[in-house]
Amino acid sequence: MSFDPLRDDPLDLGGHRYRSRLIVGTGKYSTHDVMRQCHEASGCEVVTVAVRRERLIDKEGRNLLDYIDTKRLTILPNTAGCYSAEDAVRHARLGREILTNMGNPGADWVKLEVLGDPKTLLPDPVATLQATEQLVAEGFKVLCYTSDDPIMAKRIKAAGATSVMPAGSPIGSGQGVLNPCNMRIILEYLKGDDPKYPVIIDAGVGTASDVAVSMELGCDGVLLNTGIAGARDPVKMALAMRHACEAGRLAFLAGRIPRKLYATASSPLDGLIAAGR
């Protein structure tokens, strides 16, 4: 039986509604063509992009945007590489300007990332909160990258973020969800009295089972890039991620059985023939 998305609510990110719960990056692919095939295979409806200087001297013929199906995909600009609230806000405004000019619906949102250190790429929590407040005040829908700290997650939601996006593990590390207990606390704190509030696992996904685990925990979606782009066969991995996302979501909606220490027989205990000696 194939997955029927109509049986699930859409993912609602501040009024942007999607059937796919995967958000896929556009970085680190071997070619733009491979990237485009991965986007198709993943079934994603949102792709992230970064804001960088235009190459003015050795310009290549084609822009990244030539390889993104902007009729089908919403572009989510990020503030990757920013180490201060001020720089993150500038990047957000620049991204909004380009998407406004393109007429892309992603013009009203941003994936906020304010980093604290280049080795871990972990967020700077103080600057992240400052930038969230500033961008919310400027009318942005802020999808906020953060660590898996539940208190920080609460603070970011309270600051008006459209979605809190905790990292499963460091960006590009492929370690999956290192602290599922923290994720469960974040989900309880943010969604307990507000079940529609979207929590998205952002970063750390290494393979399909990491996506499934994230979705089984009750996260609303998963954002990933390296897990697909860095795989030996990125297009196959994109398809695997899609199936894992759907499988994990279904398993969450279906409700798993409790874990028990000892066995419980699946076959009837009655009607066994006489035991041998």
């Binding site: 990056g25 556009t26 970064a50 804001v51 572009i75 890039n225």
Partner: peptide, 25 residues
């Protein structure tokens, strides 16, 4: 903003950034 590009005159020593969208996560 694009709407002000035609009116905005540059001055000596201005620092201009021209940016676009590139691949990222």
């Amino acid at each position: 903003p694009r709407s002000r590009r035609a009116d905005h005159q540059l001055a000596a020593d201005d620092a201009v950034e021209v940016v676009t969208l590139v691949g990222g996560g």
